[in-house]
Amino acid sequence: MRANQGQQAGMNQALFEAYFGRAEDVSDHNILIRCVEALGLDPAKAREVLESDQYARMVREDEATYQKAGITSVPAFKTRQVGAFSETPYAGRGVDLDFSLK
């Protein structure tokens, strides 16, 4: 929904601030609606999307794509669809990144 309204970067920032800045649970629909409202978007439309499975197939396809690339955690970065790296459970133990070329 956000990308369709040209506000993807703004929503990313709002979610980042909610999660990391205020330690809010960004899986809570009320928190998500507050982020939407802060950007001046339609909260009713956002709630409609959250309460439906309108984007479920697309999200599951994206998840599968990243899992196939070896991404198992966030943050993760993908470059030119050829390689991926992400933090691993070994962070802080001398191995901070998992480089996967699959």
Score class of each variant (00 low, 15 high):
M1F: 12
M1S: 14
R2K: 07
R2C: 11
A3D: 13
A3I: 07
Q5L: 09
Q5F: 11
G6V: 02
G6T: 01
G10W: 04
M11H: 06
N12E: 14
N12S: 12
Q13E: 12
Q13F: 09
A14G: 04
A14R: 02
L15N: 03
L15E: 07
L15C: 05
Y19H: 15
Y19M: 15
G21W: 01
G21H: 02
R22K: 13
R22I: 06
E24N: 06
D25Q: 09
V26Y: 05
S27D: 02
D28M: 00
H29S: 07
I31W: 03
I33Q: 01
R34F: 04
C35R: 04
E37W: 00
A38Y: 04
A38S: 15
A38R: 13
L39I: 10
L39N: 08
G40K: 03
G40F: 08
L41V: 02
D42I: 08
D42F: 10
A44N: 15
A44T: 14
A46L: 09
E48M: 03
E48Q: 14
V49G: 00
V49T: 10
L50Q: 05
E51L: 15
E51D: 12
S52H: 01
D53F: 11
Q54V: 04
A56M: 06
A56E: 15
M58W: 09
R60G: 00
E61F: 07
E61G: 07
E61D: 13
D62Y: 02
E63T: 09
A64C: 04
A64G: 11
A64R: 13
Y66M: 05
Y66G: 00
Q67I: 02
Q67E: 13
K68C: 03
A69K: 09
A69E: 00
G70S: 01
I71H: 00
I71A: 04
S73M: 03
S73G: 15
A76M: 00
A76H: 02
F77K: 07
F77R: 10
F77E: 05
T79I: 15
Q81A: 14
Q81M: 08
V82W: 09
V82E: 10
G83N: 00
A84V: 10
F85V: 05
P89I: 09
P89M: 07
P89L: 03
Y90M: 08
Y90H: 08
Y90A: 14
G92Q: 01
R93H: 12
R93S: 11
R93Y: 04
R93E: 12
R93A: 13
G94S: 02
V95W: 09
V95C: 05
D98C: 05
F99K: 04
S100Q: 13
K102R: 15
K102N: 12
